[in-house]
Simulated assay, not measured.
Amino acid sequence: MLFLISFAALVSAVAARPSLNFLENHFTADNESEEVRSEAIKRLLEVFGMDDPPAIHGHKQAPQYMLDLYNTVADVDGVTKDPYILEGNTVRSFFDKLHSEQVEFRFNLSTVAMTEKILTAELHLFKLRPQGTTTFHRHHFCQVSVYQLLDTSTHEKKLLSSRLIPVHSTGWEVFTITQAVRSWVVDESSNLGLHVVVRTLGGSQMDMKMIRFASGRNHHQSKQPMLVLFTDDGRRSTSLESIDPNDTEATSTLPQAPMSGPPSRTARSLDYSEEEGTSSPCQRLPLYVDFEEIGWSGWIVSPRGYNAYHCKGSCPFPLGQNMRPSNHATVQSIINALKLIKGIDTPCCVPDKLFSINLLYFDDAENVVLKQYNDMVAGSCGCQ
């Protein structure tokens, strides 16, 4: 009897335990799913011109200048407002690495590829209010000059930019230093930094209590010295030309699908009518890319995601103008309808206008970058 009870318990335990085949299949499926996800994210990184996602340690705050610039060129979803606002397709910001109490600055440009075309480089300095009061009324303007350091032993330097600024003013002052940055990108060892000299209109050295610039050592991050670099990485639209996304003519003939919401039987019936056995006409439908779900919210500042849209539907004969057909699509549709040649399908529903988006993100060196990517949003759909 004891033997029978033990045997029954063993059988029950085996029956309750998943089979070895089931565990192997489940493990294999999980592995394959993880491999697909890993490969998909790798390909998406390639679209954004990266090998690996940047590693960001702790909470970082983007410079206000970069946030304002992003809001100027992009809407809330990151779609470009006007493709001609930006000079080039990349804007990089760098904080001073020297943190000197003197008016000397140095920026690490190792993240800038030599293949990038340097268009404009700007030194942004925040001018503080003067401390001196006795000589305040004697000087209303001063000459601020920015030099590139060429040799630390001989103190040899080269003038990059110079102009007059009001002594009593406060706020950001911008100096163009493109020539120096171009040389630094070509030869990293030549980057010895910048030196700022302030003189009176008569040419004498200015009292630094009157003319003060915020430093990275003693002032808030929002006022730190910053280098802003406008570049072009050579990428161009490879298919369709981007246009202003606010141009309603591009999408006025297309039905606008809801932005979000769970799929339903009604939504499915828009794509396919089981009773008639025919698909709906070519149209633009939502396709939201959520950076948080992908795991990128730690290094992407804006946007949190964007609607890429996708094109779906049939291109039946005859193709009306609302289908935005090309001449080739019209001819293909006719050949298909007349059955003149076997194996000729109807035209496909594809994007006929594409918009660019902008990403504001931290790079590997925790600098903030604004980059524009072409052909990321289906602006409208047509039969091709």
Rank of each mutant, 00 (worst) to 15 (best):
Asn367Gln: 08
Glu173Arg: 11
Glu366Cys: 05
Met226His: 08
Arg217Trp: 11
Gly343Lys: 05
Lys117Arg: 10
Ile300Ala: 01
Lys209Leu: 12
Val368His: 13
Tyr70Phe: 15
Ala15Ser: 00
Ser162Phe: 00
Thr346Phe: 05
Pro318Glu: 09
Thr134Tyr: 09
Thr238Cys: 10
Thr72Gly: 01
Leu119Val: 13
Val174Glu: 07
Phe136Met: 14
Leu86Lys: 06
Ser237Lys: 07
Ala337Lys: 13
Ala9Tyr: 12
Thr90Glu: 14
Tyr84Gln: 13
His139Ile: 06
Asp233Val: 13
Ser12Thr: 11
Pro286Asn: 06
Ser380Trp: 06
Pro63Val: 02
Gly132Cys: 15
Val146Phe: 08
His155Ile: 06
Ala180Phe: 05
His137Cys: 06
Glu35His: 09
Gly216Glu: 12
Arg43Pro: 00
Phe48Glu: 00
Phe7Leu: 10
Trp299Asp: 04
Met226Thr: 12
Gly88Tyr: 01
Gly298Met: 10
Thr133Ser: 14
Ser162Met: 03
Glu32His: 03
Gly382Ala: 10
Pro351Glu: 02
Gln221Ser: 14
Ser356Glu: 05
Asp96Glu: 14
Gly382Tyr: 05
Glu39Leu: 15
Asp77Asn: 03
Ile118Arg: 02
Met1Tyr: 04
Lys117Asp: 07
Gly305Phe: 01
Pro54Arg: 11
Val181Arg: 15
Leu44Ala: 12
Phe22Gln: 01
Tyr70Ser: 04
Pro316His: 00
Ser6Gly: 09
Tyr65Gln: 04
Ser190His: 09
Gly203Lys: 06
Ser380Tyr: 15
Ser242Gly: 14
Ala16Ser: 15
Asp233Thr: 14
Thr152Val: 03
Asp187Arg: 13
Ala13Lys: 09
Glu366Ala: 14
Ile335Lys: 03
Thr253Ile: 01
Asn21Pro: 00
Asp364Ser: 15
Ser242Tyr: 08
Glu275Gln: 04
Glu101Leu: 11
Pro303Val: 05
Arg236Leu: 11
Arg106Met: 07
Gln256Thr: 04
Lys312Glu: 03
Asp290Ser: 12
Thr115Lys: 14
Phe175Asn: 07
Asn31Gln: 02
Ser269Glu: 15
Arg129Ile: 03
Val377Ser: 09
Asp364Leu: 09
Ile300Leu: 02
Ala121Asn: 09
Ser239Thr: 14
Leu123Pro: 06
Pro83Gln: 10
Ala8Pro: 03
Gly320Gln: 07
Val377Glu: 03
His328Gly: 02
Pro54His: 06
Glu87Pro: 03
Gln205Thr: 15
Ile118Ser: 02
His195Gln: 12
Gly171Glu: 07
Asn246Asp: 05
Asp247Gln: 10
Leu194Ala: 04
Lys42Phe: 11
Met50Arg: 14
Thr251Lys: 03
Phe7Lys: 00
Glu292Cys: 12
Ala308Gly: 01
Leu370Cys: 11
His59Ile: 10
Asp271Ala: 04
Leu360Met: 04
Ile300Ser: 02
Ala16Gly: 14
